[in-house]
Simulated scan of single mutants.
Amino acid sequence: MIEYRVTKYDPANRNVGGASTLPEWTSFSDIGCMFNGSPLSEAEYLQVENAYIVSALEFLRESGISSLAVRELENHRGAPLTFGEGSNLSLDQLKTALSRILREEFWCKLEGRDSFIHIGYDYYMYVGVPACCSRAEQVASGLGLFVEPFQSPYGGMGAA
């Protein structure tokens, strides 16, 4: 399996420990807060959120993956959901689920037999696919994201 970290964070702006050295927004709730002298607008947030979703789905499409299952669902806010633990979500359903996970409405791992998408703290996304996805890497880069080989801290396939 090939694992990637896909983020809006430029690796050139990281310290030795890997943390960003710049003040950066990390959440939907940061809309309206000041970063680098300007408030984060909803439009700017949505552009980045869309880049994450388009990129995640491109990795799956390039790998021939049409669905992922919900694992370790956490819904502490009681968000209304049309699925539950173990549900298989199609690419269209994943698009909506990823948006809601990125907005911290709920959290879960999205996993298949040989693939996954994990959304982590501070707007980090981890993607696992069966083989290298050079087209998806280019799509993500073209949308302003940074793609790096990186093992998900949320565990590989079947992790509990």
Rank of each mutant, 00 (worst) to 15 (best):
R5S: 13
F116L: 05
F28T: 03
G84R: 00
I53E: 09
G158D: 05
I117T: 05
E24G: 04
Y4M: 00
R61T: 13
F106V: 01
E111P: 06
Y45I: 02
V70A: 06
E49K: 12
C133D: 08
V54M: 08
S87G: 00
G18T: 07
V70F: 00
Y4L: 08
S20R: 11
E148D: 05
V70Q: 04
A140C: 00
F28N: 04
A136C: 08
L68Y: 08
A140Q: 00
I53N: 11
P11H: 09
S115H: 03
H76M: 11
E44R: 10
D122W: 08
R113V: 13
C133M: 09
H76T: 14
A79F: 15
C132F: 13
R103W: 01
F83S: 02
E104Y: 10
P39F: 08
R100Q: 15
G37H: 07
L57D: 12
I2W: 13
S99Y: 11
E137D: 14
A12Q: 14
L89P: 06
F150P: 01
S29Y: 14
V48M: 11
L145M: 08
L73K: 05
L60V: 07
Y123F: 12
L143C: 05
E72V: 04
N50F: 01
L68H: 02
T21F: 06
I31G: 06
G158C: 03
E58G: 09
L94D: 10
V16K: 15
Q93Y: 08
N15R: 13
F150E: 11
R77T: 10
N15Q: 10
A159D: 10
E148N: 06
V54G: 00
V129M: 04
V16Q: 15
G142H: 04
L22V: 11
A131W: 10
E3T: 11
Q47I: 00
D114P: 01
Y52A: 06
G86Q: 05
T82P: 07
A140L: 05
I117K: 01
S63C: 06
V139S: 04
V127N: 06
E72F: 12
A56S: 13
T7F: 02
E72C: 11
P149C: 02
G120T: 04
G17M: 14
S90I: 07
Y52Q: 03
R61H: 13
M34T: 15
T82F: 09
L98Q: 09
L89Q: 02
Q138E: 15
S134Q: 12
H118E: 03
E85K: 03
T82L: 09
P39R: 13
L68I: 03
V54F: 12
R61P: 09
D122F: 10
I2Q: 15
M1G: 11
V6T: 07
I119Y: 05
R61D: 12
S99A: 15
S38N: 12
T96L: 15
S141M: 13
H118N: 12
D10F: 05
L145R: 06
L143A: 00
E148V: 02
E42V: 07
S41P: 05
D92W: 07
G17A: 15
V147W: 07
R77M: 12
